[in-house]
Design a protein around this nucleic acid. Structure first.
Lengths: 201, 201
DNA sequence: AATACTTACGGTTAACTTACGAGTATTTAG
DNA sequence: CTAAATACTCGTAAGTTAACCGTAAGTATT
């Protein structure tokens, strides 16, 4: 019977999981210390000992092996994100019922990220075409210059976001197409920031 | 349970993978030493011994065989492929000196695969633009309909490949652009098949 | 018989793990 | 509300190992 984890302990395990995903090796004690804001290695060691005792962590190799912490949970084999819907310019985003998921590069694995599949060639002015996939981070706010998935009067679009004093400018990737200007009379909502797009041949 | 690789060890394997892809043979110890900036062959030997012990490397042939290192292709935790060069339509492929590597989805990790970065907007008719990356499988032969990276009279291009009886047709992704016809007077060579393309925002 | 390469050995350093003792918050039991 | 247990933190220091260096002898190829 496993003991339940405290919030801090879960956080501790998350750090390790994430580090392994991104760098392919578990973090050193010092690295964990920095990330969690500890000022002592003893604290890290206390967590390690506690988590090993309770069956959430393992040390591989001999004692004193470096970066040898591994999670005991059956860690998800390949990094995937849920495919939440279909997107086409000029229509609302179409949600998908059945929960598919798509293989993505490990650093994009994050609870707020999801994948959309592009339908039709209506996004050609953003150099996105039928069948492409985009990885989106769900958020309402964006920085100037970021690529966003947004709903303008209920219609989906993928553009770079430039807020100005009186209006919002949406720039397509392809400079041959016009800039869209949003003012107060328009219904405008950011769905998320575009992080990555890919295409399988 | 395989030991995880350190960053340096991953880099070490990348060097070998890269060298095999470019030159068709594994690098000598001295060459590895130079690329990684070591000043001792002992260091190279230490890496080789360690990586063989942990099951990431093999020596083919008898002992003392030259350039006999081969990768045991396991799905490494952080899947990466070497970035071999820059490609722009209408010019030869430009090799990159320093050995970078790029994170890719795990299924694309394969000893014959590599990544090219697209330079300039000259491939816009293939819906590929400046800064995009493509994953290519090194091969001389392609099936009809596959997307290939090819050299036509010394100039790189990315097209779909359709061999016909008397000539070869190269179709761009964008149907608004013309089909290219290759005949015996042209110098034509397939560099590889395009598997995937991606873009970071 | 020279050249290019692999393999071996011993030594150094910085990075890393591990142990210990003690102190402070936070939760639980009476 | 108060004591006691538990969760968490600190600082330091000893012990190990990964990652280097230099050199040199052994082995195949030309």
């Amino acid at each position: 019977m496993k003991k339940l984890l405290s919030t801090k302990q879960q956080q501790f395990l998350d750090i390790i999981r994430r580090h392994v995903l991104i760098y392919g090796q578990s973090p050193s004690y010092t690295e964990i210390m920095d990330v969690l804001g500890f000022s002592s290695l003893g604290t890290v060691n206390w967590y390690v000992k506690t988590l090993i005792k309770n069956g959430y962590l393992n040390r591989t190799g001999t004692s004193n092996s470096k970066r040898a912490l591994t999670l005991t949970e059956t860690h998800s084999v390949s990094p995937r994100l849920p495919l939440l819907g279909l997107i086409a310019a000029g229509t609302p985003i179409e949600a998908l019922e059945n929960s598919e998921s798509v293989e993505v590069p490990a650093p994009f694995v994050h609870p707020d990220n999801f994948v959309l599949k592009v339908k039709g060639n209506s996004m050609i002015n953003d150099n996105i075409e039928d069948g492409d996939y985009i990885i989106v981070r769900k958020t309402q706010a964006a920085e100037s210059g970021q690529a966003v998935v947004a709903l303008v009067n209920g219609e989906a679009t993928l553009k770079r976001y430039y807020p100005k004093t009186n209006q919002i400018e949406l720039h397509p990737r392809n400079p041959d197409y016009p800039v869209i200007y949003i003012n107060e009379t328009d219904n405008f909502q950011i769905n998320g920031i575009v992080l990555y797009s890919f295409r399988e041949y």
